[in-house]
Simulated assay, not measured.
Amino acid sequence: MLSLATSQVRTVVAIGAHPDDIEIAAGGLLLTLAAAVPGVRVHYVLCTGSANRQAEARAAATACLPGAELSFDLHDLPDGRLPGHWAQTKQILQSAAATVTADLVLVPSPGDAHQDHRLIGELALSAFRDQLVLHYEIPKWDGDLGRPNLYVPLADEVARRKVEVLNDAFPSQKAHDWWDDEVFFGLMRLRGMESRARYAEAYSCSKATLTF
Rank of each mutant, 00 (worst) to 15 (best):
A68G: 09
G111F: 05
P78A: 09
H114S: 12
L2H: 02
A68E: 10
L119C: 06
R191V: 00
F212C: 14
L106R: 06
L134C: 05
S126T: 15
T11R: 14
F185E: 01
R161C: 14
A14P: 06
Q94F: 03
T48V: 10
A96M: 04
K140T: 15
L154G: 01
M193R: 10
V183Q: 04
G16V: 11
I15M: 08
I92Y: 00
A200M: 02
D76W: 11
A63D: 11
L106G: 04
A68L: 08
Q94I: 11
Q94A: 13
I15G: 07
A113W: 04
A36F: 02
A35Q: 06
D116I: 05
L154A: 04
S109G: 02
L187M: 03
L77P: 04
F184D: 00
A102P: 08
Y44E: 14
M1D: 05
E157F: 14
V163N: 06
H117Y: 06
A25M: 05
F185S: 04
E137R: 07
A96N: 03
E194P: 02
F128Y: 11
G146W: 06
L134Q: 07
R198E: 13
T62D: 15
G80W: 07
T209I: 15
C47I: 12
P139E: 10
V152R: 01
Q8N: 10
V9I: 05
V165M: 03
D116P: 12
Q91M: 05
P66W: 09
